[in-house]
């Protein structure tokens, strides 16, 4: 708890300091931080929704990869971004259903089930990948009238593409749903002590299926955001480890959507700052080292938060009635 607040406080003071020194660059860096952090936050939501109901999902990486792939090539073939978005979300949901089938119905070890999804995603996308395809454009930036002209906050928060807004809103929706609605209470109960939920008339299996599928759709949205809004292209290994980083952020955020969002933005800031330093050549570090940064940070984050957090108690265990 303490380390988390400390980190936020330091970040905040740092931003204030830099903003006073050079408002233009600071604004752009923080804007970029959101751009970098958001897909990670959305991917972390996939993990949160699954693990809160007791399913470990290490297949997020695969979900991102395959849904961005399907989204990009659908958009490319049809020339329609919306169609691309829909197909990406659908693909994400399908990957979630596959995980449910393996882990919930067949009670397969969930780490293996997630690995299968990752391998399938890498294999299929590499196999079907064709070079030279493009999409006409990415989702355009939509400036929110009025709000976008507030200094600092305007450019940072209100000058983004539609999927960015959708992602941020959905993260808050998920947070509210998880802690304020019957669905959230039941989901958390299923992840902590499934037989209690079962004896209260909550179907453990149905809820796990539902949540893992919705989580997959969320991953699909993250995939669509990456390719159709942020980058505008697709290449082999496109997801670049974001699905794994997201798991670390989920843990650092204590399986709480807002916590994970905060962690992701912090992470994005670190990346944006490094980029800025590279561009302005204030420091010259070999690129190999800056590319390592996300991974080093992931390890650091996990090391800081390890031992202090408690995962949902039933995580990773298939539910069997007779054990009740």
């Amino acid at each position: 708890m303490r380390s988390r607040w400390l980190m936020f406080a330091i970040t905040f003071i740092a931003i204030l300091y830099f903003y006073m020194r050079d408002s233009l660059v600071t604004t752009s860096v923080i804007g970029t931080a959101i751009t970098f952090g958001l897909p990670l936050a959305m991917a972390a939501m996939v993990g949160i929704m699954c693990e809160r109901t007791g399913i470990v999902n290490i297949g997020i990486e695969g979900t991102l990869l395959v849904s961005s792939f399907v989204g990009f090539f659908t958009a490319s073939a049809s020339g329609n971004l919306i169609l691309g978005l829909i197909s990406a979300v659908a693909m994400g949901a399908i990957s979630g259903l596959l995980l449910s089938l393996l882990a919930v119905t067949w009670k397969m070890d969930q780490i293996i089930a997630g690995t299968i999804i990752n391998i399938l995603a890498t294999g299929l996308t590499s196999f079907f990948y064709k070079q030279g395809h493009t999409i006409p454009s990415t989702f355009p930036e939509v400036d929110i009238p009025g709000l976008s002209s507030i200094p600092f906050f305007g450019p940072v928060l209100f000058m983004h593409g539609p999927l960015t807004y959708a992602g941020i809103i959905l993260i808050f929706v998920l947070w509210v749903a998880l802690y304020k609605t019957p669905w959230g209470l039941r989901s958390r109960a299923v992840g902590e002590h499934p037989s209690s939920a079962d004896t209260a008339g909550v179907s453990v299996i149905k809820l796990r299926y539902l949540n893992v599928a919705i989580a997959g759709a969320f991953g699909g949205l993250a995939g669509a955001y990456l390719t159709l809004e942020l980058v505008g292209s697709w290449d082999r290994g496109f997801s670049a480890g974001k699905g794994f980083t997201a798991l670390a952020l989920m843990i650092f955020g204590r399986w709480n959507p807002i916590g994970a969002l905060g962690a992701a933005i912090f992470f994005g800031t670190a990346q944006a700052v490094t980029n800025q330093l590279m561009i302005t050549q204030v420091v010259t570090i070999p690129q190999q080292f800056t590319n390592m940064l996300p991974y080093v940070l992931t390890i650091l984050i996990l090391a800081i938060s390890a031992g202090k957090v408690r995962a949902p108690a039933a995580e990773g265990q298939p539910y069997e009635k007779e054990q009740a």
Binding site: P182, L185, R186, R188, A189, E192, H193, S195, S196, A197, T199, A200, G201, V202, R310, A313, A324
Partner: peptide, 22 residues
Amino acid sequence: VHQHFQLVPVMSVTENIILGDE
């Protein structure tokens, strides 16, 4: 009433009692 209690340890008493019929 179960011999082996069917309660979610990390939740409050109220949450446990209303679970399933909130």
